[in-house]
Design a protein around this nucleic acid. Sequence first.
DNA 1: CGCATATTTGATTAATCTCAATAGGGGTGG
DNA 2: CCACCCCTATTGAGATTAATCAAATATGCG
Lengths: 208, 208
Amino acid sequence: MEKFAAGGAIFWEGDPAKHIFEVVEGTLRAFRILGDGRRVIMGFLRKGDVLGVSVRDRYLYTVEAITPVELRRFARHHFEGESARDPHLKEQLFSRLCDEMAAAQDQMALISRRSADEKVAGFLLLMARTQGQHPYMVLDLPMTRLDIADYLNMTIETVSRTITKLAGSGVIATVGRHSIALLKVDALVALAEGGSSATARSVRHARA
Amino acid sequence: MEKFAAGGAIFWEGDPAKHIFEVVEGTLRAFRILGDGRRVIMGFLRKGDVLGVSVRDRYLYTVEAITPVELRRFARHHFEGESARDPHLKEQLFSRLCDEMAAAQDQMALISRRSADEKVAGFLLLMARTQGQHPYMVLDLPMTRLDIADYLNMTIETVSRTITKLAGSGVIATVGRHSIALLKVDALVALAEGGSSATARSVRHARA
DNA sequence: CGCATATTTGATTAATCTCAATAGGGGTGG
DNA sequence: CCACCCCTATTGAGATTAATCAAATATGCG
């Protein structure tokens, strides 16, 4: 069991991938830095998530702690090649990887939304699903607005304005900086699916 | 060995995932339809690629043939659970899945680029890498501009304009509708990395 | 309690999206 | 083999959105 302080790096993009980590407590961000210095957040990791499954030789992204975290560390070679006799173990890893893949595709769909409203609404719903709570829930959002922006491929200003707007219309309510209460979940769902300015054109495309 | 005509669907999002396919010949597109009818292309598949590895119960996306294709079909249950005694087989599947994951992350980075120029340049370089050829190569792009647009999260008009602009500046040359010659690869690389309008601001963010 | 930092807010600019119309290919049938 | 036609792609002008630049304001931490 290992602990990291907020802001600390667990591993870096390009490091030899010698370990797999399971998140016991806390939240982390996984990201890559593009050639020109921009940061792309590939995902957020929470309790129960596993880091470093999908790599072979070297890590594909950097992982940093957002909050203080506790991790369980496993040597990769225990899972690899002939040494992993236990078929159950392999099966589980495979299963994890499928989950990770599904998450990546969900994020792709999220980023591919047109308007800022749709993206932020989709993000909040994704976080809600991850935290698996109920309507009228209060979301815990340990990441900064900049993290959210880099995750959704937007600027921090647009994220902030969108959240302010949603709060103004009573769909959500901000509680401090790192909590958001979802007041009208169905309105949020409608927004996330492009409920406001229906794009008949895109639908035409889809059917073409 | 099975053949599909251009435009034909191999399987649909939500179908029970009973088979895995290997592409022997041709090009396909994998996509999801969002709630409001928009289409998000998750990837293009070519000779040697494998479809349907990363799913457990049901396919996560629809796959259609862009050109006439030939596929090799395998029953999923041959790879699953205890029945797959061969550790090599499992290892290979795992390896495939890691590749798929890496591709998904690369696409995420591609979509997350700011300008249309960067996206299209990045796309062309990705296609070049996929086709693994040399400088001054001629890319084969069987997909339509709409496919490219739905892949890069842009409109078809912007894709068209960007390609026209790149051709006008002598970086590429269009050869018919489905071929593009890369004339200045390094210029393309520079564009893909944000070489034109450097975003000092984003760099600042990345370091923050 | 005060400071450093994250966030919000404002004004402006620049880009893409949208709507619209034209041009160009490529495939088909005569 | 050629001409025609349909569909894709290109081009144009204007509307809309988010990015950018700049400044003020909270918030949470030490």
